[in-house]
Amino acid sequence: MFFRLISSGLLLRVSNVGSTNMAAGSRKCSTTRLRYLTQKEAIALDEELFNEYKFSVDQLMELAGLSVATAVSRTFPVSTHPSALIICGPGNNGGDGLVAARHMSLFGYNVSIHYPKRTPKPLFENLLAQCVAFGVDIVENLPPPQQLCDHYQVLVDALFGFSFKPPVREELKPAMTAMIEATIPVCSVDIPSGWHVEKGPGIAKALRPALLISLSAPKMCAQSEFILDAKHYLGGRFLPPGILHKYFLRLPPYPCEDQVVLLSC
């Protein structure tokens, strides 16, 4: 659910692009010099948020999911992409997806969830129950990837996070294949599913998202040479000053009361 800095001290510049028009108005892409987190650093940062700063999992999940829903709506507004499918995995990324589904339904989207391996914990069960109460459709069997465009205009990838280790389990392979082969845009939560946190996609036939929403701070795989033409947002406006200082994080300021900031156009 979170981000990465560069242990070697390498600083990378997010592409310097002019203003871009979005549904919520015009924003400028950030030119802040970012530090990107390794997998080890991302895990350590999470543990500090829980142990040192006393955040709860559901508290951070709610803020992360709202950020995801906001970034999706900025990039693929309900006026042009009214129907969305969110593919949720068994970990915290899947919980972020469940929260995003609820918020997107409130934003006016017709939202469906595919949740092939459910997590038998009260938090996840409650989030799923909330989605159902808000009219989110639960899809048990995915249509073939080429037919997804007949039902949806945008996919949200909340399958795997930065703790993923290959191979993909059999029960999750159809969901992974659907996102790789889909002809509609995919929006990835924090890490494109199946990617190595530091080395990126690794294989030719990998998920290529149209939108990446980094949470807390970007991970190494969010560098421009990996995400190519994808739009890139940062969300998760909850990092304490002590975390920023300890990890030498240089993050761009969030505009006004926004929960997300555009990093690259």
Rank of each mutant, 00 (worst) to 15 (best):
14 V>C: 12
21 N>D: 12
21 N>Y: 07
24 A>L: 11
25 G>W: 09
28 K>L: 11
30 S>D: 04
30 S>F: 01
31 T>W: 03
34 L>Y: 00
35 R>L: 15
36 Y>F: 08
39 Q>W: 10
44 A>H: 13
44 A>G: 10
49 L>G: 01
51 N>G: 12
52 E>G: 13
53 Y>C: 12
61 M>E: 09
62 E>L: 14
65 G>A: 14
68 V>P: 01
70 T>R: 03
70 T>L: 06
72 V>E: 02
73 S>K: 10
82 P>H: 13
82 P>K: 07
83 S>Y: 07
84 A>F: 02
90 P>N: 11
92 N>S: 13
100 A>H: 03
101 A>C: 14
102 R>I: 04
105 S>C: 07
105 S>V: 06
105 S>D: 06
107 F>I: 09
113 I>T: 04
116 P>Y: 02
126 N>V: 15
127 L>K: 01
130 Q>A: 06
131 C>V: 05
132 V>G: 12
136 V>D: 00
141 N>H: 14
142 L>G: 03
162 F>I: 06
163 S>R: 09
176 M>E: 03
185 P>V: 03
194 G>P: 00
198 E>W: 05
210 A>F: 06
218 P>L: 03
229 D>I: 15
234 L>Y: 00
241 P>A: 15
249 L>R: 00
252 P>M: 05
253 P>R: 11
